[in-house]
C-alpha cells in the first residue's frame, strides 16, 4: 500500500499539512471557511511535532497489525483488507478512546469520535502531501496491503 512518509530533514514546521488536512476533512473544503466559519473547526489528522530546528509530521502509520483495530470495542475501527487503510466508522464509534490509549504512535485524537488519518480516501494524494511546500511529505508505495 501507499503511505505518507515524513522526511524530517525537509520539514519546516510550517504546519501547512495540518491546515490542509483540516480543510480536506471539512464540510466546505475551503481553507478560510473551514477555519473561520465551521463549528466545530475540523481536527487535523496530522500533527507536526518539534520546533523550527527539528520537526516532523506524524500521522497514522496504517500498521500491518493495528493495535487500534484490535482494541476497538465496537468494531468501528477497521483495516481494509484490500487497501490496507485503517479507518474509523464514525457511525459506530462511541468515542471511548481505547484506540487512542493503545496507539503507540499517538496519532488518534479524541473527540466525539476517534479522529485519525484516512489517507484522504478517494483522492489521488492525501492533502497533506499535496500541499507540503518542501516535499517533506511523500506518498510512496511501501509494499504489502496488509
Amino acid at each position: 500500500m501507499k503511505k505518507v512518509i515524513a522526511r524530517e530533514e525537509h520539514c519546516l514546521n510550517c504546519k501547512l499539512c495540518e491546515v490542509y488536512c483540516r480543510t480536506a476533512h471539512s464540510q466546505s473544503k475551503d481553507v478560510i471557511k473551514a477555519h473561520l466559519r465551521e463549528n466545530p473547526v475540523p481536527v487535523s489528522r496530522i500533527t507536526v511535532q518539534g520546533d523550527n530546528m527539528l520537526s516532523v509530521a506524524v500521522n497514522c502509520r496504517h500498521c500491518d497489525k493495528p493495535a487500534c483495530v484490535e482494541a476497538c470495542i465496537t468494531g468501528a475501527m477497521q483495516k481494509d483488507p484490500e487497501t490496507g487503510v485503517v479507518t474509523c466508522d464514525e457511525s459506530r464509534c462511541i468515542g471511548c478512546m481505547t484506540c487512542m490509549t493503545v496507539c503507540g504512535f499517538g496519532v488518534i485524537k479524541s473527540g466525539k469520535f476517534a479522529v485519525k488519518c484516512d489517507l484522504c480516501q478517494g483522492e489521488d494524494m492525501p492533502a497533506c502531501v499535496k500541499n507540503c511546500p518542501n516535499n517533506a511529505l511523500v506518498y510512496v508505495e511501501v509494499g504489502g496491503a496488509e
Binding site: L12, N13, C14, K15, L16, E18, V19, V31, I32, H35, L36, N52
Partner: peptide, 10 residues
C-alpha cells in the same frame, strides 16, 4: 487570517 501561525514560525 486563520491564525495557523505559519507566518509566525516562518
Amino acid at each position: 487570517c486563520i491564525s495557523c501561525g505559519a507566518c509566525v514560525r516562518q
